[in-house]
Simulated scan of single mutants.
Amino acid sequence: MKILGKFGLFIIGLAAVAGVGAILLPALTKNRHSELAMAIDNVNPLVKNETVYASTSAKPVRQFIGGGGEKEYTYQLVTYNQQGKSRTLTFDSQWRLKPQRFLKIETKGQNVESWSEAKKESVPSGVRQNLMMS
């Protein structure tokens, strides 16, 4: 019985550490541009999917040859959600982004799930204003 009690306490302690980690990690991974930050956010159940918007006025921070021999570009963009909160995201593209356009980006924390061009009218006005000022 003592072993079962100690095992139970171990499980409770482990759950407490995991819970605290799940709550604190999103604050630690925000605006981090590493694969580790993306992976942590991707598996953390407390990090919710979110739609953010960005302007394509930034130039690529890196250009490289992908696994299939094609050119790829890495972008770091300041994004805004509908509440006006900003976050910097990093993602790769197989083509250069056209300047002075808007992107609609589906994220899970720092992990970019998908992105597409957004028409100016579909970007919320407060977000559009933030993007034009940055």
Rank of each mutant, 00 (worst) to 15 (best):
Thr51Pro: 07
Tyr80Ser: 03
Asn130Asp: 05
Thr90His: 05
Pro45Leu: 13
Thr74Cys: 10
Ala54Trp: 00
Pro26Cys: 05
Arg62Val: 07
Tyr75Ser: 07
Asn44Trp: 07
Ser57Asn: 15
Ile40Gly: 05
Lys48Leu: 04
Gln129Met: 04
Gly84Ser: 05
Asn31Trp: 06
Asn44Val: 01
Val52His: 00
Tyr75Phe: 11
Gly69Tyr: 06
Gln83Pro: 02
Val112Asn: 05
Gly5Ala: 15
Tyr53Trp: 15
Glu50Thr: 00
Leu103Ala: 08
Gly8Phe: 13
Leu25Tyr: 01
Phe102Asp: 09
His33Ile: 06
Leu77Cys: 01
Ala22Asp: 03
Ser116Cys: 03
Phe64Lys: 05
Pro45Phe: 10
Lys2Ala: 10
Glu50Pro: 01
Met1Pro: 04
Gln94Asp: 08
Gly126Asp: 13
Ala27His: 09
Tyr75Asn: 06
Ala15Lys: 00
Arg32Leu: 06
Leu97Val: 12
Ala18Gly: 01
Ala54Glu: 11
Lys2Val: 12
Val61Asp: 08
Pro26Glu: 12
Met38Thr: 08
Thr51Asp: 07
Leu24Ala: 11
Leu25Cys: 05
Gly84Lys: 01
Asn130Pro: 02
His33Arg: 09
Ile11Cys: 14
Ser134Tyr: 10
Ala37Leu: 02
Asp92Trp: 06
Glu70Asn: 14
Leu28Tyr: 10
Gly109Pro: 06
Lys120Met: 08
Tyr73Thr: 11
Asn44Ser: 08
Leu28Gln: 14
Glu117Ile: 11
Lys119Ser: 04
Ala22His: 02
Asn81Leu: 06
Arg62Leu: 15
Ile105Gln: 09
Pro99Val: 11
Tyr53Ala: 00
Ser114Met: 06
Phe102Cys: 04
Asn81Ile: 10
Val20Asn: 05
Asn44Ile: 02
Ser93Ala: 09
Lys71Ala: 07
Leu24Asp: 02
Gln82Ser: 14
Ala22Gly: 07
Glu70Gln: 13
Leu89Met: 00
Thr29Arg: 03
Gln110Asp: 14
Leu97Glu: 14
Glu35Gln: 12
Glu106His: 12
Ala18Met: 04
Glu106Ser: 13
Ser86Lys: 13
Asn44Phe: 01
Tyr73Gly: 03
Leu97Phe: 09
Asn81Met: 08
Arg62Gly: 04
Ala58Val: 05
Pro26Gln: 07
Thr29Ile: 10
Glu113Cys: 01
Asn31Met: 04
Phe64Cys: 03
Gly69Met: 01
Lys98Pro: 00
Lys71Asp: 08
Lys6Thr: 03
Glu117Pro: 03
Val20Arg: 03
Arg128Tyr: 01
Ser55Gln: 09
Lys71Gly: 05
Ser134Ile: 08
Ser86Pro: 03
Gln83His: 14
Leu77Ser: 00
Met1Asp: 13
Lys30Tyr: 07
Tyr73Leu: 04
Ser57Tyr: 11
Val47Asp: 14
Val47Tyr: 12
